[in-house]
């Protein structure tokens, strides 16, 4: 958490940090509920990686605890994708697949550049590579598994598709080629879904009602409940230390 010498764009750190924080919380909800013990550990591992990324990013903007626990829903800048409820295991895997592929491309570009996020991205990209590998494996296993797992995996991919367009909306202060990223993302997802005998969803990649969406502080209904749970303790005992 050393202070970065190059100036960091606050909106950028907030957007990337909130993505990691919110998804980490969602994955934390799996604790004790994963399909098998080994998977339990894998999901917790990914959640911890993301929480670590969130801590670094939020600390660049201000006090990490205050930012995590005292902001209202409208002040969060995470993608709507990451705030979506876990659903069944396939649904969670679809969310992981979409997001980790995006994060891999994003951090890959950031790590290769010389911007203020380069050192952080260079560290995170190793973690994210594992997240992507994990998600791709499960996508193939479930998609190419039983009839039921195939159907559930397809359902997860379809249901979350409309939240994917938002990922490639430029974020102020993040200097990457968003269009190239969107193309690379599409290509990567297509190849994984093909291997998994799944169909690439065809619908629009964003809902009409979601213009701007999470990055502008507009969130979906389940997010409020998630935040209430996440922030409850801190708000009940303001100023407490732990």
């Amino acid at each position: 958490m050393s202070a970065a010498p190059a100036p960091v764009s606050a909106p950028a750190a907030l957007a990337l940090g909130d993505d990691a924080l919110v998804l980490s919380h969602r994955l934390g909800e799996w604790a004790g509920h994963a399909p098998v013990l080994e998977e339990e550990v894998a999901l917790a591992n990914i959640a911890l990686d993301l929480l670590g990324q969130a801590r670094v990013l939020l600390s660049l903007v201000g006090d990490e605890d205050e930012l995590a626990y005292l902001r209202e829903e409208r002040a969060f800048r995470n993608l709507q994708l990451v705030e979506q409820p876990n659903g069944d295991f396939a649904h969670t895997i679809a969310r992981q697949l979409y997001f980790s592929t995006y994060q891999m491309l994003l951090y890959g570009q950031l790590a290769a550049g010389d911007g203020p996020f380069a050192p952080l991205a260079a560290k995170a990209v190793k973690e994210v590579a594992y997240h992507q590998d994990h998600a791709e494996h499960w996508t193939v296993r479930l998609g190419d598994g039983t009839d039921e797992s195939h159907e559930r995996m397809q359902r997860g991919c379809d249901a979350l598709w409309r939240f994917t367009g938002e990922m490639f909306q430029p974020v102020e202060g993040v200097d990457v080629d968003w269009q190239a990223m969107a193309a690379a993302w599409h290509e990567s997802i297509t190849s994984v879904l093909e291997r998994a005998t799944l169909t690439v969803p065809e619908g629009p990649q964003r809902g009409a009602w979601a213009a701007g969406a999470g990055r502008q502080g507009l969130h979906t209904e389940p997010f409020g409940r998630m935040l209430a749970e996440m922030q409850h303790l801190h708000r009940s005992h303001p100023g407490a230390t732990w």
């Binding site: 098998v36 013990l37 080994e38 550990v41 894998a42 591992n45 590998d133 494996h137």
Partner: peptide, 16 residues
């Protein structure tokens, strides 16, 4: 550990 195949066993072993 338990795993359905070697590949998954490797991944789980890495985590555990």
């Amino acid at each position: 550990l338990h795993a359905p195949d070697a590949e998954m066993a490797l991944r789980n072993a890495r985590d555990l």
